[in-house]
Amino acid sequence: MDVARVLHANGGAKEITYAKNSSAQKQVLSLTKPFVEEALHDYFGGTHIPDKMVIADLGCSSGPNALIPASEIIDTVHGQCQKLGRRSPEFMVFLNDLPGNDFNDIFTSLQPDFFSKRREDEQCRVAGVPGSFYGRLFLSRSLHFVHSSSSLHWLSQIPSGLDAKNGPMQNKGNIYITKTSTKTVMNTYKQQFKTDFNLFLKSRAEEMVSGGRMLLTFMGRMFDDPTTKEGFNHHMEMIAQSLMNMVSEGIIPEEKVDCFNLPCYVACTEEVKDIVENEGSFVMNRLESMQVDVVDCEGDNVLLSRGERVARMVRAMLESILGYHFGMELMDDLFTRYVDVVNSYLQTANYKFTVFVLSLTRQ
């Protein structure tokens, strides 16, 4: 499976779009705003302020959240420059995501929602950069500030060795790591994350100026054991359960589930620390975790059951890759079953997931 081609959040105008079902990701942006401001204040605490500032938002997706980071970064820099009695730099903002992302939605919203809020003395240009951030995207030593939210838990590919084309199926009945997964499956996922995150850091190190800042937020886990039933893990088990219900009714062949593994990994803090320290290009200023309740929402979704809210959020993120493998015609059935499973689970539990906030400085 070509993950870079297949994986993308739902775009367009239908109800199950990322734009209409991303309030949890908006919560993450709100909670991490102080960390963005801290990184920028530290960066501009010195005497040098560049005449031109280049910002990259990696994994920007689409919808109303896509321009929030850029707006907040520009506003923070402008405020800091005013305090220092300096003129604000010109801004170049690069919005990056995989080629299947709905970039048209982003650029349609630029006028008037984005540029009308900019002050006359804030010169700002915005460009889209389609492509995987697991590799080079920008010119050498050109970026001053890199931001990424709710993206780095996605892998560049299905972990090597778990793709059915590369050998026997090793994670039968599962689509991610569970208690029934073998050590081989766990280690394969861990190694793929290590390879990808290391490449991400190396690529950004080549693209960033010395002293540049990077603020990353992505899903993680609180415990060393990757099979612990935390938010993300448990809900991937519930999707697998829904798929296996369809198998039992003859709707999906069992081997179709057995050969599917999500290209995603939620790491623990020690794994993240080890990769950053061993790669060596960045100083780690912060690595913190927070809990986000994905049942909290806004807009029309408040009228839905708690299970429907969660299912819409998950479907907006995963439908492209699940539909590619199992068939888009089965997605309504799958997520109807998933709603029932989630509603049952939420009768006795809350659905919170762990988010890591990682602040780095380019050495």
Rank of each mutant, 00 (worst) to 15 (best):
E254Y: 07
V93R: 01
G46S: 05
I252E: 02
A316D: 08
V292R: 03
M169F: 10
T184A: 12
V6R: 05
E38G: 11
R204P: 08
Q347P: 08
C60Y: 03
V339R: 01
G12M: 09
V129Q: 05
H78S: 13
Y43Q: 11
Q241C: 10
M246V: 11
G307Q: 01
F115A: 11
K14V: 13
G307T: 09
V93N: 07
A39R: 01
N101V: 06
S61C: 09
E207L: 03
R119V: 14
I251W: 01
Q157I: 10
V247Q: 04
I68T: 15
Q157L: 11
F223S: 08
D333E: 12
G323E: 06
Q170A: 09
E90V: 01
D274W: 06
R119F: 05
S281N: 10
Q191N: 15
S160Y: 09
T348E: 08
N101E: 02
R136I: 02
F107W: 00
K194A: 15
E72G: 13
F356C: 03
F193T: 02
V129P: 00
F94L: 09
F91S: 01
L216H: 13
S289M: 08
Q25L: 12
I73E: 04
E254N: 11
T188C: 10
G323N: 01
V129M: 07
R362N: 07
N187P: 08
L143F: 07
R286E: 15
V28A: 04
N187A: 15
L318A: 06
D102A: 05
S142G: 07
G250T: 03
P159S: 11
H147E: 08
C259S: 15
P159G: 03
T17P: 07
E120V: 15
S22K: 10
G167K: 09
I275C: 04
L304V: 04
A240L: 05
L346C: 02
A70G: 05
V54D: 02
E298I: 12
D296L: 15
A127N: 07
S156M: 09
R213I: 08
D333H: 14
R125C: 12
T336Y: 11
N187H: 14
I321L: 06
I275G: 01
H325P: 02
E277D: 14
L155Q: 00
L58S: 05
S61L: 11
V146H: 05
H41K: 15
F115Y: 12
V292I: 09
F35A: 15
R306I: 00
S281A: 11
N65K: 10
P69D: 12
A240T: 09
F138H: 02
T269I: 10
S344R: 13
C124T: 13
T17D: 02
V54L: 03
C124I: 08
M290N: 03
V314I: 15
I177E: 06
F193Q: 03
L358T: 00
G173R: 03
A13I: 14
F44H: 00
G79Y: 09
S151I: 06
C60S: 05
H78C: 05
S320K: 01
Q157K: 13
T217F: 07
I55Q: 01
G299P: 04
F282D: 01
V339A: 00
S248P: 08
L29M: 13
